[in-house]
Each structure stands twice: as C-alpha cells, then as structure tokens.
Amino acid sequence: MGGKAILTNVEPSIVLTLCIAGTFMWRALGVAVANHIDISSDLFEWFNCVAYAMLAGLISRIILIPSGTLETTLLFDRVVAMAIGLVVFVIFKRNIFWGTFTAFLIFLSLTALR
C-alpha cells in the first residue's frame, strides 16, 4: 500500500475542524430535540426505530458493499462468515460473543487462505 498525496489544497486541520463541526451539529441537534421528549412517548419510540434502522442499514451496507480495505475482500467470504456466525448465535441462545467470534474466525480463515 503505497502512500498517495492528499489532493485537497486546503490545510487538513481546517478540513478536520469543519468535519468535526459537521458531525457535532447532529449531536447538538439530538440534545436539543431530546430536551423536549418524554421517554414514554410515541415520538421517543419513533426515534428509537429510526436509530435502529439507520444503524442496521449502515452496517449491512458496510458488509455487502464496503469501501476502503474491506472492499478488497470477497463478498462470498463476508456472507459465509456472517451466515455461520448467525447459526452459532442462534445455537448459543442469541449469544453475541460466540456469534461475533465465529464470524471473525471464519472470515479470518477464508481471507488467510486466499
């Protein structure tokens, strides 16, 4: 992996500061909205559903259509590792550790064999 130069001609620290502000904006907006929400309300329940859906959509996209280093691996390896992990997860009464550990081990073995 050879190093490539950054092409943006603006100082990286300025871009970083603006990106930090761009993400913090959503966090601050969340704080502002949360101040007016009751935990037992329908609106709170709706936000919970939206948060779950957003995160699940993002995670499945990363596994199925990744970018960066993960993009260099085979879809088959990622899907097989997750499928076997899910079987173990179910067998071990929905145990997160064993599901994750199995998926990791299978993926590691498949990529090491390539």
Binding site: I6, L7, T8, N9, V10, I14, V15, L18, C19, A21, G22, T23, M25, W26, R27, L29, G30, V31, V33, A34, N35, I37, D38, I39, F44, F47, N48, V50, A51, M54, L55, L58
Partner: peptide
C-alpha cells in the same frame, strides 16, 4: 481525491447523521 472542502464536509456530516436520533434516544 481532491474534492472541494464544502463537498467533503457535507459528505462527512451526512455519513454521521445517525448521531441525531442516537442522541435523542440516549439523553432522556
């Protein structure tokens, strides 16, 4: 890839938009 700063900031911010509903769920 050398995109203008505004495009970088907008893309980065949108990719992290999930923090809004996540914060709404945690703060209460």
């Amino acid at each position: 890839v050398g995109l203008p700063v505004l495009s970088i900031v907008i893309a980065s911010s949108l990719a992290n938009m999930r923090f809004m509903p996540m914060t709404v769920v945690v703060m209460p």
